[in-house]
Structures are given as C-alpha cells and as structure tokens.
Computed example of a mutant assay.
Amino acid sequence: MEVPVNRIFERRSINFFDPARELEDSLLKEIIDLAANAPSAFNLQPWDIIAVKSDEAKKKLHGLANQQPKILEAPVTLILSGDRSAYGDDNPQWSFMRENYGNDGAERAKGAASFLYGSTEERKIKFAESNTGLLAMSIMYAAKSLGVDSHPMSGIDFEGIKTQFGLEGEKEVVMLIALGYFDEEKVLHSSAPRRRFESLVKIA
C-alpha cells in the first residue's frame, strides 16, 4: 500500500490519546505487516516487538517510562527491540540468501555482515538501533496511512524494560511507540517548523 503524501504531513506525535477508543487486533496486525516492509541491512530484520495492551502490562511499563500518561491512555504501546547479534549464523534470513545466491554468496555476505556489524561493540549497537529505527518510522507512517495516531518515546528506563519484559541476550530496547487515537477533547498545538532542504543538505 502506498502512503499518500498528505498522510506523511498529517502524522503528528500525539501526546493525548482517547482511552475509550480501542485499537482492533486486526488493524494492529495490518499496521505491523505493512511496516515490516522496511529495509534492513542484508535483510536481516534485527528487530522484535512487544505489544503492551493489558492493564497490568501498561502499569508496569508506565513506571519504567517516567510515568508518561500516554502509556496508560493509548490502547497499545509497542516496545521495539533490536538484536545486536542478528548478523549471526542462526538468523533464518541467511537461509533465504543461500537459496537465492548460493552457499558461496551467503557465506561472503555473512562474513561482510560479521565484520561490518559485529567487529566492535559500537558497531553492534549501531546495527541494532539504526535498523530498528527504520522499522519505527515505517510503523508510524503505516499507522497514519490507516488512520491511527502515534507517539515515539525514548525517555525511558531501557534496562528496566529489558528486564521486566523478558528480553534476553543481546536484544536491546530501542524505543516505545504508543498507538491509538487523538483525544479530541484536548488541544493539539500547531506542528513545529521543520528544517528543509536548504538548511539540511550540503552538496559535496
């Protein structure tokens, strides 16, 4: 599905969600399936999502996210995690590459990925976070294309969320995304100005 340009400009970070409006599981699935077309290095897709929906889980996450009200108000908050070791042999995407490019092609790609993303701790972190960031933006645009509002959050207890929500090994929390519908009884302030081409881009 193509995201209309006007939808891109309509996307806002919504601080106030309508707690009376649910987000149907079928619509959440549609958002994630659409967003999962996001690109990733070697198509390794080094990400996972926990959809926080129950009152119990929301309360737990609320305490680990600086008590931001949107955690309790939004029908769903996604915990996006990136796997710092997803370039390893056990990633099933290598099987797809082997089928399409042969054993030699897959082994060369694995060697390159291991060096590019696993040779230092800094590279491992960048691998997990940069790729999961691509998924995150894809989720927010996919949501808006389907009429669902969102708000990303990084002012959170990353280690606490990892522990309390059972993320193991080298899976690290990257951000949260609240999904739902704007509370029409609240005021949504005008969008802050964005930098455009002239101030963003340096031609080299």
Score class of each variant (00 low, 15 high):
A74P: 02
A51M: 07
K171S: 14
E129S: 07
L179H: 04
G102F: 08
M97Y: 14
F158I: 10
K171H: 11
S190A: 09
I139Y: 05
E170V: 01
K53W: 07
E56M: 03
L34A: 08
H62K: 03
S138E: 06
M137I: 06
D157M: 04
I125N: 02
Y87I: 11
E198S: 15
I8G: 03
L200S: 13
G160Y: 07
L176R: 00
G102P: 10
Q45E: 15
A36T: 02
G111F: 07
I50R: 11
D183G: 03
E2T: 14
G160P: 09
E172W: 04
K171I: 09
D149I: 01
A113I: 09
V76Y: 06
E107L: 15
N100A: 11
Q68H: 09
A113C: 13
S138D: 06
R98S: 13
A128V: 08
A128T: 10
S191L: 08
A65K: 04
K124R: 15
P152I: 10
E122K: 02
N103H: 13
K171N: 12
S199A: 11
E172M: 11
A65Y: 00
A86H: 10
E56L: 06
E129R: 01
F182M: 08
E198T: 15
S54L: 07
D183K: 06
P92M: 01
A128H: 00
D55F: 06
E121W: 01
R12G: 03
L44N: 00
F158K: 13
S85M: 13
K29N: 07
D55A: 12
L176Q: 05
F17R: 02
F16E: 14
S26V: 15
S138H: 10
A112W: 15
R194K: 13
A142F: 02
